[in-house]
């Protein structure tokens, strides 16, 4: 497939990736001969119908799963052959995740949720508190630091989720349908926030969505259909 490639060496490079799942005797082919590059500083939207393999692809980029075939390179490092343990450490250092259903720990308040990834670093309590405060300020939720998830609105919970995703200043922010469970207004606020993180803080973002309104905010959109990239639209 000849696609317009981003300039400079890519931050994410996916080459010849194939992925299938074994369900009993049945082999489910999800991704086939897939190539993709993401440049540093890009805000990429992955679009496609349900079941087209968007989440599977995002999981491969984020080191949550390994491809059946092909290579996944992030920031110059091949991650498709790392062990589970190595992948866990790698994710802690390089990846921030934002999920559709926010997935906050219900037993922890907002700041404790944001702090979670920092528990895997060598920062002491005071340093962690500093980073948490900065991340919460960035998403505009300093005044909700002590609130538990169940007392926050969906939009607020997702902003806590984003603060958790960026608190370690990861190489890459991966979002799986971050606005999928929100109304238009709250969704727009989340998209504004992601745009700001991309433009003002230079965060590289890959966002899965099936909402054209959301993908319109990205700097580039890749369409996935039955496990293959069908076309790309650069803004």
């Amino acid at each position: 497939m000849s696609q317009p490639q981003p300039i400079g060496s890519p931050l994410v490079h996916i080459a010849g990736v194939e992925k299938y799942f074994q369900r009993g005797a049945e082999k489910i082919h999800v991704l086939a001969e897939l190539n993709l590059a993401v440049a540093p500083g890009e805000f990429l939207a992955l679009m496609g119908p349900s079941g087209s393999g968007k989440s599977t692809l995002l999981n491969l980029i984020g080191g949550l799963d390994r491809p059946t075939k092909g290579t996944v390179t992030v920031a110059g490092e091949r991650i498709d052959q790392l062990s589970d343990r190595q992948l866990a450490d790698w994710r802690a250092r390089h990846i921030g995740f934002v999920f559709q259903l926010y997935n906050l720990m219900p037993v922890l308040n907002a700041e404790r949720n944001v702090e979670l990834p920092l528990l895997l670093t060598h920062l002491n309590a005071a340093q962690r508190a500093q980073h948490v405060a900065a991340a919460l300020a960035l998403v505009g939720l300093s005044h909700r630091a002590k609130h538990f998830p169940r007392t926050l609105s969906g939009g607020e919970q997702q902003r806590v989720g984003i603060a958790r995703g960026i608190v370690t200043d990861p190489t890459l922010l991966l979002c799986d349908e971050p606005t999928g469970d929100l109304d238009r207004k709250a969704g727009d606020e989340i998209l504004d926030l992601l745009c700001a993180l991309n433009r003002e803080h230079g965060k590289t973002i890959v966002m899965v969505t099936h909402d054209p309104h959301a993908s319109a905010r990205a700097s580039r959109t890749v369409h996935l259909f039955k496990g293959q990239i069908t076309n790309e639209a650069v803004k």
Partner: peptide, 14 residues
Amino acid sequence: IGELGVLKAIGFTN
């Protein structure tokens, strides 16, 4: 299960 998945995604080890 889901929360455990999130912790793993964040980088907590097995």
